[in-house]
């Protein structure tokens, strides 16, 4: 491990091998191997190849995780890309979240954009202006997004979903990602209540769906649809009850 002095105050932190350091403010943090940071940490750039454990909160403009990263507190910052596993104890607040691996959160996840190609698991809410999923998610609270695009590869779950545009489709076999990650034909989205302006659903199991314009596509099992302007049920869909409000 060496800490290079850059300028007066802000240093770089680099861990190669195995080491444990105190938190603080750094310019760039790079971990290759195994690192343990004790205390709150803020930095411009964080990259981790290997294992990183932070006892405290992390604030970083740019994060790139290959391997595992465990943060006991909250996570704040700009962009997070992970192809490994990130687990967060506190709330996650980001601008851009790109998940090719796994994110596990015990609390809320907020990000302007969420692109999911791996797995997102949170016990709290999940909020995003744009939420695009080609993976697996399980959300304990509310999934709230302006534009929600879900391609079902495996079973997904959320307690509640709300937003402007909600589109849920079966994953296409022709998508390049399907070459590596085969969509399961029995993949379902399970949700208790869904509310939005424009809703299009496939393979979705829900108790209640409320919206202005609702189209229920094939493979859906919906208890009750409440709509304002338009309701359409495609074949192979089960809708037990619908009413115009």
């Amino acid at each position: 491990m060496n800490q290079q002095a850059v300028g007066k105050e802000i240093r770089n932190l680099r861990i190669t091998g195995s080491s444990s350091v105190m938190g603080g403010t750094y310019n760039s943090v790079k971990i290759v191997g195994e690192g343990m940071i004790e205390g709150d940490t803020s930095c411009a750039k964080l990259s981790c190849v290997g294992t990183l454990e932070v006892d405290g909160t992390v604030a970083a403009d740019k994060m790139n995780i290959v391997g595992t990263c465990e943060v006991s507190g909250g996570l704040r910052g700009g962009e997070l890309k992970t192809s490994g596993t990130v687990s967060v104890g506190g709330t996650t607040q980001l601008r851009e979240l790109n998940i090719a691996g796994t994110i596990e959160s015990k609390n809320h996840v907020y990000s302007e954009q969420i692109k999911l190609r791996g797995m997102l698991h949170t016990l709290g809410d999940c909020e995003a202006e744009q939420f695009t999923a080609r993976g697996i998610f399980e959300i304990g609270g509310l999934l709230n997004a302006g534009k929600l695009q879900i391609h079902l590869y495996r079973d997904c779950k959320a307690h509640e979903i709300g937003g402007g545009h909600i589109i849920v489709r079966k994953a296409k076999w022709l998508h390049p990602l399907s070459f590596f990650f085969k969509p399961s034909s029995s993949a379902r989205l399970t949700v208790s209540v869904m509310e939005g302006d424009h809703i299009y659903l496939e393979n979705t199991i829900a108790d209640i769906v409320r919206g202005n314009q609702v189209v229920i596509g094939p493979g859906c099992e919906i208890g009750l649809v409440e709509f304002k302007e338009h309701f359409e049920k495609r074949k192979d869909a089960v809708v037990r009850d619908n009413r115009k409000v």
Partner: peptide, 21 residues
């Protein structure tokens, strides 16, 4: 209730969720 609120104010689900976000 949410339903009555939307009806009374004329806002949509999308707006309500957006404001919450």
């Amino acid at each position: 209730s949410k339903k009555d609120l939307l009806e009374l104010t004329g806002i949509s689900y999308g707006q309500l969720y957006r404001w919450k976000r």
